[in-house]
Design a protein around this nucleic acid. Structure first.
Lengths: 66, 66
DNA sequence: ACAAAATGTAAAAGATGCTTTACTAAAAAA
DNA sequence: TTTTTTAGTAAAGCATCTTTTACATTTTGT
């Protein structure tokens, strides 16, 4: 699943560390998600979307992968 | 996190078993999610939303829980 | 060029999601 | 009421997500 985290994070001038702190997760988690190492939990997906002021559907691009 | 799965599933006249089959998960998984035992993975959330023809944001109600 | 900040990555451990097997209870249909 | 279908629940095991600690590389600022 692809996402637009990096794009939107940069637009709001967050570093990965700042963004991770805002989301109450570690920088490693934030980085892994941003770089498609794995998908976040649903709750975290909502939280990230909220911080970036978009919907979950706008932040993540689901392509029937499975 | 609350959800509207039961409501929308019934509207489309799926049994839990039929719905689970459509989603390619077990009936137990479908039932547990529907009854708020745990949240689905993000991928499954998208899949369920797709089957019920709503967005993830419409299907799940995030209330800043955590 | 040098220092500082930001990003990428890895391994181990704990937490959560999903499956399998199996059994019970409630609701619908006959 | 009896049968059949649908829904709820539980425990064990494997898979995935997240943290912690730690280090390497790249980018930015001076």
């Amino acid at each position: 699943m692809k996402n637009r985290i990096a794009q939107l994070r940069k637009k709001q001038r967050y570093s990965q560390a700042q963004f991770a702190a805002a989301a109450h997760v570690t920088r490693q988690t934030s980085n892994a998600i941003e770089n498609d190492k794995y998908d976040p939990s649903l709750g975290l997906a909502f939280h990230l979307a909220q911080i970036l002021r978009v919907t979950v559907d706008e932040l993540f691009l689901y392509e029937g992968e499975n």
